[in-house]
Design a protein around this nucleic acid. Sequence first.
DNA 1: TCGCAAAAGTCTGGAAACAGACCATTGGAG
DNA 2: CTCCAATGGTCTGTTTCCAGACTTTTGCGA
Lengths: 240, 240
Amino acid sequence: MGEQQLVALLRPVRAGNAFEETVERLLQAIKLGVVAHGDKLPPERELAVQLGISRVTLREAIRALQQAGYLDVRRGRYGGAFVVYEPPRPRHGDLRRAVNQMGADDLDDALTFRMAIECGAAQVLAAIDLTEEQRALLRRRLADVNDAAPGDYRRLDTAFHLSIAELTGSALLAAAAADARLRVTDLLNAIPVLGPNIDHAAAQHAAMVAAILAGDPEAARKAVVEHLDGTAALLRAFLA
Amino acid sequence: MGEQQLVALLRPVRAGNAFEETVERLLQAIKLGVVAHGDKLPPERELAVQLGISRVTLREAIRALQQAGYLDVRRGRYGGAFVVYEPPRPRHGDLRRAVNQMGADDLDDALTFRMAIECGAAQVLAAIDLTEEQRALLRRRLADVNDAAPGDYRRLDTAFHLSIAELTGSALLAAAAADARLRVTDLLNAIPVLGPNIDHAAAQHAAMVAAILAGDPEAARKAVVEHLDGTAALLRAFLA
DNA sequence: TCGCAAAAGTCTGGAAACAGACCATTGGAG
DNA sequence: CTCCAATGGTCTGTTTCCAGACTTTTGCGA
């Protein structure tokens, strides 16, 4: 069998030590806006269980994020770890820096991965009979993006994209979609949110939802391809 | 943002202890046939580095697999850990047992995940300009499955499917495809390899390759859907 | 105002995992 | 026949990580 397949399978069992992985994970949750500004993380004991790590390790990670200015930790009843971070306005050069940090190969890898996952999720979803509730959720998420204030745009865009994978009912797929999105968040956060781009994106989002609600996998696929190609092109344009 | 998205993101940092994860990973490599009967694993020192674990932990995992009869470990120059395992002929009830072990929800999850990943990979690949070398590899893998001896069928089928994700050049996608396949291997290994099913699969495989080589993402998508729906139906039939 | 419940903060002993040096075995090359 | 390189096998001290008990802080509700 292929040697490539061997390296794919015998890849690292653990990405780093528990502390680093935990910091990374929490940071992602914050940067993706899954826990928004002002929200608090679950209590340490619960969160430690969810993350499958000890409370000690979790606390180290939280302390690191506190010192880095992402969290404000308060004790006592109704205390907790509150998110203080707000995404900064992108500055010139941020994107270049983010890309240099990840490497050009990784960028292609991430974009390809995202394309495959999101196309796959959309067409799977289009092939499912959705309940009225599910259809409403999808429409709602679309409307949320369209109504978003500039500072909330990326967060709600993320929520919309992830909803598609989530609605398939596959936890594995939802996790993969979150992973795919994570790998481009830093890049997306590094480019400004401009009116014309938002308008394009809105049309493409609408096409995706329409295709999914119509139960048309092929149209869904095409809409996703168009949208993600657009995003990739935008990234490349800011890099040039 | 959605609570579901929170649980997707705050999922366990580590799946288990290093030992268990390593055993699992090696077992997968063996059951998938990535290292076939008679092959040997890389030397302990190399493998430990690849897996990102210490040699001690790796050796514990290898010893467990040796005691379980999967590996034969020989020392001295030209020694190593040789794969002794050969996939057993499926017996009646194996499938039911495998499904019970994973749970019905997990089964749906795995099948949905696989559908999304493989559809996504195939259409991404169809949209790429392939080199002649890559085209040849794909044709070769297809031919390998068609020429497979019964005992090699599953292994070469796996290799064929994984090649599609691999050829996209995205390591992330390749890893996801391997993961998706893993989650159904035990099930596939539990059903007999029957002539008519092989013939159907061969036609579907051929359609997938043809669509990819023709650069037709839509046809690729349809071919994959048809093939995987067929496999899912087969599984369900054996369960009924 | 007091008490209580929910949260963060602290401490301790032990298990898991690691890094690295060193030993033992084997089979081919000279 | 001897040597040696490649491999598995073993040992030791250190670091990381964990489980769980206990302490402190806080603010609401009786």
